[in-house]
């Protein structure tokens, strides 16, 4: 049991003097995972720009960004879900099913504006199914969303079979890959940025966001503080589904092709990016900025390796290795820290 004397601080709360605060800030900055992700990201971008032919060109920048928009979108609600201690592995299959339904509705002759709304709603419903299983029946989200990962992908083949719907209007498909003015930045990035700001505000500046960290660390204590844990998780799964639906629309237009296997395996990249961005797989820790850096890092790395003619299978090895590294390293660092703390205690 801890005692007052164990915690060697002066009687009154320290007034947090400026010097100390600056030092603490510096320390906090460099012991933070996201800081290092940003640093590594910068190194990768600079290194690849210098050594990989074509990496820094405007055309490659445009394609790199377009490639990661879908991952970035889905990673936003995923960040919040993982912070609460849950996970949604069904996102890529939701994307696929939404894409397949989009194709069928287009074939059926509905106006595309209506289709987009319907498909996003479909995504929300698919997420709702996950949310209900997790919150009403108390099932682990890992099991539930592995189940729906298979089920939704299966359904998308039921909907569209192995054909592709590719006759979407040019103006829509062009819009999905057009860039802002003369810059290499595609318009779709703007959508991702707007949503990212919204999610960041919710996560870091609202009571709801604060409660997510609390429940991710200790759901029981959060409940005792009046937080509606299940309600929050339910709506996060709905949001995850809706955003996956939106990503499905984007994916379909970007590749001008609605297919049942669209986005297969994308959940691996999303989860890897979220964990690489410093979100704890055990919940309770993470920042949205870190996740965005993680998305960019993973995307740039894969892109640079692709340009350097590394085969696709090897790329997946890299993604998997990064995922495991980002889970293992914080644990090792944590163990080292508590070991150091213990030693300090024993000496002091």
């Amino acid at each position: 049991m801890a005692h007052d004397t164990l915690y060697a601080h002066p009687e009154a709360p320290a007034p947090e003097p400026g010097a100390r605060r600056a030092g603490a800030l510096g320390r906090a900055l460099f012991t933070r995972w996201d800081t290092w992700v940003v640093i590594v990201l910068a190194l990768v971008v600079v290194g690849a720009g210098a050594s990989v032919d074509g990496f820094a060109g405007p055309r490659n920048t445009q394609f790199l960004l377009m490639d990661i928009v879908a991952i970035a979108l889905i990673a936003l609600p995923m960040t919040l879900i993982v912070i609460t201690g849950e996970i949604d592995l069904s996102v890529a299959s939701t994307l696929g099913l939404c894409s397949a339904v989009m194709g069928q509705l287009w074939v059926a002759g509905l106006p595309l504006e209506l289709i987009v709304v319907l498909v996003i709603l479909l995504g929300a419903v698919l997420g709702m199914v996950n949310g209900l299983f997790v919150t009403k029946f108390g099932l682990p989200s890992l099991a539930v969303t592995i189940g729906t990962l298979a089920a939704y992908r299966g359904l998308s083949f039921v909907v569209l079979g192995d054909q592709a719907v590719a006759d979407f209007p040019r103006q829509w498909t062009d819009a999905a890959s057009s860039t802002i003015g003369g810059s290499p930045v595609p318009w779709s990035v703007l959508i991702a940025v707007v949503l990212a700001v919204a999610f960041a505000v919710v996560l870091h500046w609202t009571p709801f966001g604060r409660s997510l960290f609390a429940m991710g660390n200790n759901a029981e204590a959060a409940t005792f503080a009046g937080v509606s844990v299940n309600r929050a998780k339910f709506w996060l799964f709905v949001a995850s589904g809706a955003v996956a639906g939106l990503a499905g629309v984007y994916w379909t237009l970007r590749y001008a092709s609605a297919r049942a296997d669209n986005g297969s395996g994308l959940e691996l990249a999303v989860v890897a990016a979220v964990l690489l961005g410093g979100v704890s797989i055990f919940g309770g820790r993470g920042t949205l900025l870190g996740v965005l850096a993680g998305v960019l890092l993973l995307g740039s790395l894969r892109n640079a390796l692709q340009l350097a003619d590394v085969p696709a299978d090897t790329l997946n090895v890299v993604t998997g290795a990064l995922l495991i590294t980002s889970v293992v390293v914080p644990n090792v660092v944590g163990m080292a820290r508590s070991w150091l703390r213990q030693r300090r205690h024993q000496r002091g």
Binding site: F213, A214, N217, N218, E220, A221, A222, F224, G284, R285
Partner: peptide, 8 residues
């Protein structure tokens, strides 16, 4: 367990 979120 119930009163505090120890990690926060």
């Amino acid at each position: 367990q119930q009163g505090l979120v120890m990690e926060l």
